[in-house]
Write a protein that binds this DNA or RNA. Structure first.
Lengths: 203, 203
DNA sequence: TTCGTCATGTAATGGGTTACATGATTAC
DNA sequence: GTAATCATGTAACCCATTACATGACGAA
């Protein structure tokens, strides 16, 4: 998880550990918070694996900063992690991280991931419905309320995913979308740079 | 976390490990799934600490089941865990577990916990708003959509908590509610047994 | 008799956290 | 000069997971 996040950030530009954490806090802090105690060991691990490397910009680095940049095998690993990863990784917390780096994927891959996520949520919702029917009477009202709210949230997650899928499909129809699909995976989409496209759900 | 769950289930009745996991799956499976690899070691740890003890009902136990029941210090620990716990435990995943055992708390304690949770969510939402204002322009549309949706979900969490608080306050006004407040903490409320009270939000 | 499920357990591993230690640089 | 924040790192721990091993029992 942290590995994906670090590789994703380093794709943008070289950074040192402290800055990585700051960026992570700013972008994903709403969902996830990492501590320094994780960031430095992970960075070293990635370096041992050859996925990142030290990159000391002599003029930009007045202090003893350890600036890292992503390597080519790091780029490959990033794509592997975001699109496949551990097969069990479709649950909850890991998805936001993937989405945060969606701009590096081709629309087709995005749609594939979104639909996989959707299927997971739908299954979860179904399981909830089943256990509601089963438990209704002998369950206390707090647990029931909890389950109902959980299901509401999941339903709204699904609706949101549907909007994202629709936006991707719409983008595929436009000339830009077709160009976008032609670009190699791993390079950012123009759609995803500065101005959000009109088709992206604002809610 | 698992400790609270096990103690909470054992408050209801004595159970063995396998059954504990089944119950957990049925009641909280929507939010949380535990594996056997966690349950048995935790059970042994709780036994070492004297919070649970073996209870072999000679007739009801044909096999080599290890049936455990909660002890008095286990009951005390349960109350400690659910109402205070690690001070940092107000985040996300731990709250549903607390709520699942709310029937063992007095209305005043419930309200206290709900308001603490509410404050946490409100703060989180505020942080989200701040980072939205800060980041708007230089953030890609996927991350923005993620943040918006996350904030929507948090807002709906708050609304739900508000309903629960209102229901508790309403219950405090009724004669039953006053009786309820008089009972010692740790015994189940009649409100919370079989029939949900009219005041519990159904949504 | 074989399959599913009940039932208990351990070892290795994962993926982080907290707490601590250290020190440089910047802003007031 | 002193406080904040920038910057890196390590050791100990936490709370779970996966994978594996073992075996009893009931139903087809």
């Amino acid at each position: 998880m942290l590995e994906l996040a670090i590789l994703g950030l380093l794709k943008e530009r070289a950074m040192h550990g402290y800055e990585l954490r700051k960026q992570l806090g700013q972008r994903l802090g709403f969902f996830w918070r990492v501590s320094f105690g994780s960031i430095y060991p992970t960075l070293k691990k990635l370096e041992r694996q050859g996925l990142v490397e030290k990159f000391l910009a002599e003029e930009t680095t007045p202090r003893r900063k350890q600036v890292y940049r992503i390597t080519e095998s790091g780029e490959a690993e990033f794509l592997e992690l975001i699109s496949e990863g551990a097969s069990t990784a479709w649950e909850e917390d890991k998805f936001p991280l993937r989405l945060a780096f969606f701009r590096y994927l081709r629309p087709e891959s995005r749609i594939r991931l979104l639909e996989r996520r959707r299927a997971y949520l739908e299954e979860k919702l179904d399981e909830g419905r089943r256990s509601m029917r089963r438990a209704r009477r002998q369950t206390d009202p707090y647990t029931l309320s909890l389950m109902r709210h959980g299901m509401d949230v999941t339903a709204s997650d699904i609706a949101w995913i549907d909007e994202l899928i629709a936006a991707e499909r719409a983008a595929l129809e436009t000339p830009q979308g077709k160009l976008d699909s032609a670009r190699p995976e791993g390079t950012p989409s123009e759609l995803a740079s500065d101005q959000p496209p009109q088709t992206m759900p604002t809610k």
